[in-house]
Amino acid sequence: MKPILIVLVCLTLAACSTVRPDPEIFVVAEQAIQAAVAAGGDEFAPVEMRFAREKLEVAKKGMEKEKYQVSMYLVEESEINAELAIEKSRTAKTRRRVNELRKSNEELDASLRATFGGEFK
């Protein structure tokens, strides 16, 4: 829900680019990065994690220089990178389980074949 709200807010704000954005959007973006870290993002999606952090830093600097419009876009881009990092981490974990189970099945197959010989199909 939150990203959608932010998108709406930003789109509204984008029309009037000179308005200073709600500082709450930085808190939300930071929370997204934390969620990505918790999901294993640093391990499974380091590139996206770096994008998320860098874009958030640049957005904060943009605020200091009153480049509000760019900052709001960058916050969005930071968040979507955190979201992608979460999805990539989950997918990587699933892939890892697939590989583990495939290996385990191959071992089981080999051991059963050794035990029962040709009877095992």
């Binding site: 979201e83 992608l84 699933t94 389980r97």
Partner: peptide, 20 residues
């Protein structure tokens, strides 16, 4: 572009879950 990446990685996951 990011949305497409997200969709792709989710599709991969669903496919992996079926394999699982």
């Amino acid at each position: 572009d990011r949305r497409i990446q997200i969709a792709r990685t989710m599709a991969e996951r669903e496919q992996n879950e079926q394999t699982l």
